[in-house]
Design a protein around this nucleic acid. Structure first.
Lengths: 339, 339
DNA sequence: ATTAGCACTCCCGTGGGTTGAGTGCCAGAA
DNA sequence: TTCTGGCACTCAACCCACGGGAGTGCTAAT
């Protein structure tokens, strides 16, 4: 069906269109890509590619542009992800190593990805679902309120206010803190409900009520409604798109502000090597039919704790994006897990 | 120079242009605004307004559009800030009261402002410079590292890692924590350097080194490099602008990602009633010559701790924006200071 | 299987004519 | 003086016709 040369032609069309953003004709391919055949031959191949649905013509007398299916084949079979230069790699690690806390790591990562790819970068905070508890801190506030601070092993810090029915003594609070920490320290967030289920009953009567309130607060924060945080950067790159982007940027900007949509775009957290590319309508999000997402999980090599990626037009430079996403994910994973 | 009717004409032009985004002519004003005079009279007034620089004509046979100077006069003298409806007010307070922690308050505030004004909303976290310390927590980590967590009275939480030269015992850490807290609790962040200057020397020899490291970390976080956080929302509204916005949206999007620029846009933190409107070139930021910023401080009534506002095209609806910014600032100030 | 040639299609830029909204100015009315 | 109706003028926007050109599909020859 598709012999070697037809694939080469498809690759040429994608390459060309990605740089020029204009329909590419048979002549241009014959000249710039030195296939040793005439434009007429290319035309026949192009007709075949069009029949198969890999390319399409905006109108009769224009060149061809790749379809989603064409990009898909290109990404799967025709593009070698060339690794970044060593200069780039050292730049990445240096920039990220300057980060001073987790927020800073996340911020720097988005900035970096956006700059490397010239696209919009999206980075998810380490998921609470997959984190372990490093420490739980209880801070007494006025009016019988307790601030519950949870520190995850990834450096992520969450806090919430619990309201008690009565003031609690400093000693009792110390006791509670110690008991809670020894119960849940270094266990998975998802295991916390089980571990703390019987906890209040194990205490003396007067500590029972405050313990219930605090545990409820803890569970609310970590399990019932764990906030999946996301950082976005590089939206200015969308302004470039303007006219030669078939969709409108409005739905894209909207999607970038909706955590739920973003998480769906980034995809499920998987294990292992999971560089993922979603092209055009594969995203199944209204208004993003002309957008692609390149994403990967980060964490330890065999265990992702969150995802990051870039969002751009379907005619983006996939090799570059894939390389950058892969490299950055590796570095961030290292930083976040070793901290 | 400018009699009453000319001012009315200017107001009419601004009103009309803000809704239609198209140059407005003398006939339209005479009809829609029932001034009781003929278009010819309006034309004379318009000629005068143009001489004074309040309005301008894109080309000979088009209507007039307000200049920056025109908007300025409009905002200063011609627009009554009509308060929000009581329905809107209760909606605001209900939505904000659902917030579960400071991050949530900030996030909800931007979303709310963006929705109310249909513009880009910008909210600054309570400035560390103006906050008081509620509590300092020290958490021992593996490898002789200490996580220093600072909780401000506004609910803001900052954390940083301090590296010690040797492990420290749990008791010693408790001692340090207690000493630090009793020294700095409820004092201004800016006073912390003075308060802790002599602190390490007051300790026993073996606690001296770790105390120095921890205090250094604390100062780094709070004073030397206090991170001014900012949340932005509603960028999708920029997509609407497209053609009838004289500037490009690219520099706007860039500015929105640069904290430094954003802080400059929001303006200095002042005391008292400080609703501020910067129109077009008054922003003194390249590429934002066609953008306006409406901002206000929030906090207690006599003491702002940060600012929030909206950014939009110069032809935005100032009354609406000013009302929304004022109202939201009041509610947020209440929530943040009473927590 | 490849290629040269050729007719065909259709986007796009150009130029001219027309339209219409809006202006500026003037002369007369209030 | 101030306002108004009238009128000539300007100029962006729109329409339309036209030609150039890029690119295609088809066919016949290699």
């Amino acid at each position: 069906m598709l012999d070697e040369r037809k694939l080469t032609v498809l690759r040429a069309i994608v390459d060309e269109f990605v740089t020029s953003h204009e329909p590419v004709g048979s002549k241009a391919i014959a000249q710039k890509h030195a296939l040793g055949v005439s434009p007429a031959t290319i035309r026949n191949d192009m007709a075949a590619l069009e029949d198969e649905g890999y390319i399409a013509a905006p109108h009769t007398s224009a060149g061809r542009i790749p379809t989603d299916k064409g990009y898909r084949l290109f990404v799967d079979k025709l593009s070698a992800i060339k690794p970044l230069s060593s200069a780039e790699r050292t730049a990445i690690s240096q920039f990220l190593d300057q980060a001073v806390d987790l927020d800073d790591v996340m911020l720097r990562t988005t900035k970096l990805l956006a700059q490397l790819t010239k696209q919009v970068a999206v980075v998810q905070y380490p998921s609470l679902q997959l984190s372990r508890i490093r420490h739980v801190e209880l801070v007494a506030l006025p009016h019988a309120k307790i601030m519950v601070v949870v520190i995850a092993d990834t450096g992520r810090v969450e806090q919430r206010i619990a309201e008690l029915s009565a003031e609690i003594s400093s000693d009792d609070l110390d006791h509670l803190r110690h008991q809670i920490n020894s119960t849940v320290a270094s266990s998975l967030f998802t295991d916390v409900p089980t571990l703390l289920a019987e906890f209040p009953s194990s205490l003396s009567a007067e500590l029972h009520a405050p313990a219930v309130a605090i545990v409820a607060c803890l569970l609310e924060t970590l399990v019932v409604r764990p906030e999946e945080r996301i950082v976005v950067s590089g939206t200015a790159h969308l302004a470039r798109l303007g006219s030669d982007y078939s969709g409108s940027v409005a739905p894209l900007l909207e999607a970038l502000e909706e955590n739920v949509v973003l998480l769906r775009l980034l995809g499920e957290i998987e294990t292992g090597d999971d560089l993922q590319v979603r092209i055009g309508h594969e995203n199944h999000v209204d208004g993003l039919g002309a957008a692609s997402v390149v994403s990967a999980g980060y964490g330890t090599t065999d265990h992702s704790i969150a995802r990051l990626g870039v969002v751009g037009p379907t005619h983006m430079n996939y090799q570059n994006s894939m390389a950058a996403v892969t490299a950055v994910a590796r570095y961030v994973g290292r930083i976040v897990t070793e901290a």
